[in-house]
């Protein structure tokens, strides 16, 4: 299989260039800082709580939880509840019950919580930046060093060369996501312990008529939720990777293509703050990257934007990028 040898070649180059190592090193540093920060915040919160509410011993949270549970039960039985509140109350009660059954302080962090939260925060800027660092160099790096000439005068058609590069990128994205997960579990595990994988977590939020609808909320175990978050993150990585890949083919300079996509991403953050009423912005890929917010219900509801909508928009960008990449790459004159 020639394609396999080509992919092997690309992986060897990527490893020798040490770019992947660099990306992983950034991950280690950032996760460590983030985990340490979480630890500090947690301790401060605990201190505040014990000041305000007089909870000193670690066991005392149970009393509070019991109290809340009874309170919620009463509210649930009240005849004036409407359906929406009911389901979110039920979900909240289930979570508290789990905490009591397993003697888990709901305030405490865990490796499972942390690794999921980390990716939820990383998905719209930090993860794309890591992917851009890898993707933007794959073709333009060869153009600027002139080695593209060596690659394209073999008895291999151009589309196959490009396909091997694209598939290598897909593989690298898996590696980055895998390491992001493993590193965040290991590093945060030292701070918070390695457990927490079966704790229930709420999902199933919907946006109805511009409002967050909690009527269909339900609990899933944390591991399942993490899996969903990381799957969505992988999808985002593929999207951003494909777009960077295309830009690096069109621009032919690594620095320029990294600059273009980074500024686009940052501009995307601006747009989602300031231009929400301008309808066309929702078709931009940068505005649709926060897919995990649909899971956690922390999305600022914008009329007409749903998980399905965002995924469709991103898919459209990906397919267009891949098509443009292949058409341009196989037709262009190599003048470097």
């Amino acid at each position: 299989m020639k394609l396999f040898s080509l992919i092997e070649n690309e992986v060897i180059k990527m490893i020798s260039k040490k770019r992947l190592m660099f990306v992983l090193a950034i991950l280690v540093v950032l996760i460590s800082v983030f985990a340490y920060g979480q630890k500090q915040t947690l301790e401060r919160t605990k201190a505040q709580l014990s000041q305000r509410m007089g909870i000193t011993a670690t066991d005392d949270w149970r009393k509070l939880a019991d109290q809340q549970l009874i309170d919620m039960k009463n509210r649930l039985e009240s005849p004036y509840r409407d359906e929406k509140d009911k389901s979110s109350l039920l979900v909240r009660m289930e979570q508290l019950q789990y905490n009591l059954d397993h003697n888990l302080n709901p305030l405490e962090q865990s490796a499972a919580k942390f690794s999921t939260k980390f990716m939820e925060q990383a998905i719209f800027l930090f993860l794309p930046l890591l992917i851009i660092m890898l993707a933007a160099d794959m073709v333009s790096g060869e153009s600027s060093s002139g080695t593209i000439k060596l690659l394209l005068v073999r008895n291999v058609p151009r589309w196959k060369i490009l396909l091997s590069k694209y598939l290598t990128l897909i593989i690298l994205e898996v590696i980055v996501l895998f390491f992001a997960f493993v590193l965040s579990v290991i590093i945060s595990g030292f701070f918070f312990g390695f457990g927490g994988w079966f704790a229930p977590i709420a999902t199933g939020f919907k946006v109805l008529a511009g409002k967050l609808d909690t009527s269909s909320v339900f609990n899933v175990p944390q591991w399942q939720y993490s899996l969903m978050v990381y799957s969505l993150a992988y999808f985002v990585a593929v999207v951003v990777g494909s777009i960077s890949f295309m830009i690096s083919i069109l621009v032919k300079s690594t620095a320029a293509s990294i600059g273009i996509i980074m500024s686009t991403l940052v501009a995307g953050n601006f747009i989602s703050f300031f231009l929400t009423d301008w309808k066309i912005t929702r078709y931009m890929f940068m505005v649709n990257l926060r897919l995990t917010d649909y899971l956690s219900g922390s999305f600022q509801p914008i009329e007409g934007m749903t998980m399905l909508f965002s995924i469709t928009v991103l898919l459209g960008w990906t397919i267009a990028s891949v098509i443009i990449s292949f058409v341009y790459f196989t037709k262009q004159d190599i003048l470097v």
């Binding site: 180059k13 020798s16 260039k17 060093s145 002139g146 080695t147 000439k149 060596l150 005068v153």
Partner: peptide, 10 residues
């Protein structure tokens, strides 16, 4: 072609 450009990091 033109100059012997090779992968310098290999």
């Amino acid at each position: 072609i033109e100059s012997p450009d090779m992968y310098k990091y290999l």
